[in-house]
Computed example of a mutant assay.
Amino acid sequence: MSQETLNPQARQMADESMFRNLAAQASAIWPQEAPLFRRYELPPGARILDAGCGTGEITARLAGLFPQATLLGVDVLEAPLRVARARHGALAPRVSFTQGSVFHLALPDGELDLTVCRHVIQAIPHPERALAELARVTRRGGRIHLLAEDYGMIHIPPRTLDPADFWPTAPREFGARTGSDMLVGRRAYAMMRALGLADITLDYVAVDTLRVPRETFAAIWEAWRDGYVDAIGQHTRFSAEQARRHFDDQIATIRDPDQYAAWVIPILSARVP
């Protein structure tokens, strides 16, 4: 299959708005996610892959969490990798970044102690194939760590507009038109079971207005707005202007100190038997 077919959101992923988004998401999620990584009890000198690493926000945090580990960040797009190398070059050679596809990793079988994949499988077709490739490169007894976005797990009260009119209708239609499943978080457990993975755990991170600074939360929504409204207008029943109004309305709610908003994100882990 072509690069475009396997990465239908390549234009959005390479836009500077996504770089802002990855930074805001890392700030919002990492404090709740880091304790999940600590549970894995990795060996000294562990080999870790960050598949779909983007700008290396989490690769660098993992390097700090596991100071004796060797880390490889892989992304299909060169633009975010240039940012990753520029921002985190001081971590070389223990941390490196290379271009590659999550569907065809240029690594031997059983190479890794921990394989991490975050904010990826909702944006690609055939997520089960990507998970199978992650399992292939992970050693027996090693762990897979998967953050699986699901845009049906967004809870924002009505303001001028009702977010329930937008979520999950827009992402469901967007995914159908681009060959991806933007509600894949609810299917990730079943996909891991189908691969025969063991000791599956499922935790939830809450990006909400109690656990995350409102401006950090709002920055995620602003980046989505800036990077996606035109594509939403192309692939869904919503025009770009309608999508923009929904995002702006929700951003106002997120910033409103009298309101509560939340995006719940499944994070799964499994052992390769």
Rank of each mutant, 00 (worst) to 15 (best):
P273F: 05
R11A: 10
Y189Q: 07
E149M: 09
T55E: 11
P171K: 02
V76C: 05
R61E: 14
P93M: 06
A51W: 01
Q9I: 10
V74Q: 04
Q3M: 10
A26Y: 01
R244I: 04
L268F: 02
G142R: 05
A63D: 12
T209G: 08
P157H: 09
Q250I: 11
R85V: 14
V229C: 13
M153G: 00
R47D: 13
E128P: 00
P127H: 03
A218L: 03
Q99G: 04
A148L: 00
D113T: 06
P273E: 01
Q250E: 15
A206I: 09
A240Q: 10
A26P: 01
Y228P: 00
E241I: 06
W263G: 00
A164E: 15
R255A: 09
M1E: 11
G64H: 08
R87P: 01
A86V: 10
D248M: 08
D203N: 14
P266W: 00
L72Q: 11
E41S: 13
A262R: 05
A188S: 14
D50Y: 07
V205F: 11
T55L: 03
R255S: 09
A24D: 03
L6I: 11
P108Y: 08
G175N: 00
Q259I: 03
L195G: 04
A46E: 12
T55F: 03
L42D: 12
H246R: 02
L197C: 06
T178Q: 09
M1K: 07
F247P: 00
A14R: 14
A14P: 11
A270P: 05
Y228D: 11
L107E: 14
W224L: 09
Y40N: 04
D162K: 03
A106W: 14
M182I: 02
M1W: 01
P80G: 06
P31M: 06
A198E: 15
L22W: 07
D113K: 00
A240G: 12
L42M: 07
V207R: 00
E33T: 13
D249L: 15
A84M: 07
Y189W: 11
A262V: 04
V264L: 13
D75S: 05
G110M: 02
R140H: 10
E215K: 08
A123H: 13
G142D: 15
L195Y: 09
S2A: 06
R255H: 07
L6P: 04
